[in-house]
Amino acid sequence: MTRHAAAPTVAELSDLIAPHLHLEGPLLPILHALQDAFGHVPEAAMPLITEALNITRAELHGVMSFYHDFRDVPAGRHVVKICRAEACQAVGGTELAEATLARLGVAWHGTTANGAVTIEPVYCLGLCACGPAAMVDDKVIGRLDSVRMDALLAEAGA
């Protein structure tokens, strides 16, 4: 996940917002672009978005908070999404997820103390015939077991 070291400048933010303004329904593409760049939607971007789209801060908050994807604070350096849906449950996904959370000492949406990994639930990755499944950042992993999960977490620095 790309992350700028310093707080983003107005110019940087505007450069990410402007290319989407001609779209029909530009808000989600703007939020995705910002989150892809910074790992979250920075506070400094909010007034720029509301100004550009002529919406209220409340409307923007309403949209941001509706969707599971968008965050207004940074996550851990890596985000591990573990599938909780039925097909993965049928092959031991629940046990795997619970063991992972217990081992890391976090709850769902929690971040490890060293800031390396945030664990999130996801409801289906479309890997239903090769579960249990998870996604580390944008990389999909199927046929997971505790050994592979431990290796993934170690690699992510958890």
């Binding site: 993965c88 409801y123 289906c124 479309g126 890997l127 239903c128 015939a129």
Partner: peptide, 11 residues
Amino acid sequence: DEGDSGTFADR
């Protein structure tokens, strides 16, 4: 938006 568990035909 193929969100249903057990489906992956769209993907």
